[in-house]
Amino acid sequence: MVRVVELSSELSGKKIFERISLEIPRGKITAVMGPSGTGKTTLLRHMTGQLHGVSGKVWVDGLDVAALERKQLYALRERIGFLFQNSALLTDYSVFENVAFPLRQHTRLPEILIRNLVLLKLQAVGLRGAAQLLPSELSGGMARRVALARAIVFDPMLILYDEPFVGLDPIALNQVLKLIRTLNRELGITSILVAHEFAAVRQVADWVHLIAEGRCVASGTPQQLAHADSPWAAQFFGGKIDGPVPFQYPASALDEALGFVGPSS
């Protein structure tokens, strides 16, 4: 479904990816994991054509995303659901209108059908009662779930979830997990899941890519990765502080920055 080939990319001069390649199989749930700031969100933005790499290609459903014309790109995006890491709800519209937004823009469905579809999706995330609230009246976790409902309202062919589990209580978490699984198993929707919670990910994901330092450092089923002897996987899933994965954003040595040692003579 999605094929990233030798993609290199930079953001304001900073290298994010260095010839990264990975594949997302059709009809499966694939998790993309990796330390904070490695570029998981950036990778998703490449898939939706919001960013273009310096070299390499991204194929989505057989289309070279970077080469698409505006019209074709928008046609492709209509078939992709995207859950923003920060929800990005439209603050002027009620919860109901937020979820209805893609339907209203791209279909001419009668009002009653839109109403039913939206209420069903809101029911699925447990927020049917909040339909008339404004986004500013929601908690962080509720906003996540509204954004999720909006991402899936169109029953797209591909859904990109950027951290769907953040801010959810255990009950809502299970509910969302179930939802992601149902959408995939019953409607065959290909799903890409960016998340940090390995415990949650291993319940739903068919496949996991671990990216770090601009490359895909390990891939496999959750079970394989959990017991892999790759130092990256071992450190990341074990949550160890020491290892090849840096915790610090690249910077000069700490003692130097704090002024304990003069700049290297």
């Binding site: 919001q50 209509e78 923003f84 990005a88 709800l89 439209l90 603050t91 823009q105």
Partner: peptide
């Protein structure tokens, strides 16, 4: 400006709604 800052314009783009036109 606030819509840009809170990613609402990107969200529209991703919902295949052109923010210039909308």
């Amino acid at each position: 400006g606030l819509m840009r800052a809170t990613d609402q314009l990107s969200a529209m783009e991703l919902m295949a709604v052109d923010p210039i036109a909308f």
